[in-house]
């Protein structure tokens, strides 16, 4: 009896794993199958044409803009905030408040960020639907990710490094940028790459703050659409699954590259780290 039960459970475990793998393979397989026909040099590096047949360069450029701007702002703030929490703060009410806020930010769905961005950056700060408004919204979205991953990697720096440095009559600041941050760098970089993935995958928040203009952005104050939003819009408006899948391939490849880079960096730097 017990044996039978065990075998049933074991069967279920195999079945669940099989199902998960099958479904996920099917999705990726389908996207590649549907979209690969459109992939060409002109598709990736050609300008968009509203009549169809054009490329997705404007969306790639927009995606790169949003990544660059949001990380440019969120990286220093996130790293320094993590440094404060991990290296400077005394445990207490203030730190608990900051941690609570950071955790809460992680749990907010992106559509709420979109609402906020639309009223705060777009309307109140008069930035309009634009790449910059979307990037600022994204900055808040990735800030908790950067803070958390930086904190985790600061935790892995041995306490003896800090003591060794401070005992030589250095200040905390010197210890930080000469010893602690270099040691924590692989983890911090992996966190930044994860954030890039998060920005690339984001749709709702960008949809409400950057708008949907399908053209090469003239500046960061222009409305534009990212790859992900583009993939959504061609599906929703034109039902063009093929095009959506082709954009999907670009997205999946980008995410794959980012993940591999993150793994590579943390391995490489860990070794180079003497």
């Amino acid at each position: 009896m017990r044996k039978l039960k065990d075998n049933i459970l074991l069967g279920l475990l195999w079945f669940a794993a099989f199902l998960t793998v099958a479904v996920l393979v099917m999705i990726v397989g389908y996207i590649f199958y549907k979209g690969i026909g459109l992939i060409s040099f002109d598709f990736i590096f050609g300008d968009y044409s509203p009549s169809g047949g054009g490329g997705i360069l404007p969306m790639i450029v927009t995606t790169i803009y949003t990544i660059a701007i949001s990380l440019l702002i969120a990286t220093p703030i996130g790293i320094l905030a993590a440094v404060y929490l991990q290296e400077y703060a005394k445990q207490g009410r203030l730190v608990n408040t900051i941690r609570f806020a950071t955790e809460s930010l992680t749990g907010i769905p992106s559509i709420i960020y979109g609402l906020f961005g639309a009223v705060f950056f777009v309307t109140t700060l008069k930035l309009g639907m634009s790449i910059i408004a979307a990037s600022l919204t994204l900055t808040i979205i990735v800030l908790p990710v950067i803070i958390r991953t930086t904190e985790e990697s600061l935790k892995t720096v041995p306490r003896t490094y800090r003591e060794g440095s401070l005992a030589l009559g250095t200040t905390k600041l010197q210890t930080l940028y000469k010893v602690i941050l270099p040691s924590a760098m692989p983890g911090i970089l992996s966190g930044l790459i994860l954030s890039m993935g998060r920005i690339i995958g984001e749709s709702a928040a960008i949809f409400l703050t950057a708008g949907t203009v399908a053209a090469m952005p003239a500046s960061i104050f222009s409305s534009a659409r990212t790859l992900t939003v583009h993939s959504y819009l061609v599906t929703q408006e034109a039902g063009d699954i093929e095009l959506a899948a082709a954009v999907g391939i670009v997205l999946i490849v980008l995410i794959l590259i980012l993940n591999l880079t993150a793994t590579f960096i943390s391995k490489k730097l860990n070794k180079a780290n003497y």
């Binding site: 999705i27 690339i200 995958g201 999907g248 995410i255």
Partner: peptide, 17 residues
């Protein structure tokens, strides 16, 4: 890796299949 791909693509798959 699949946790990282844009959720929109799951929607595209849903609509298509």
């Amino acid at each position: 890796l699949l946790a990282g791909i844009p959720s929109v693509l799951y929607g595209v798959f849903g609509l298509a299949i």
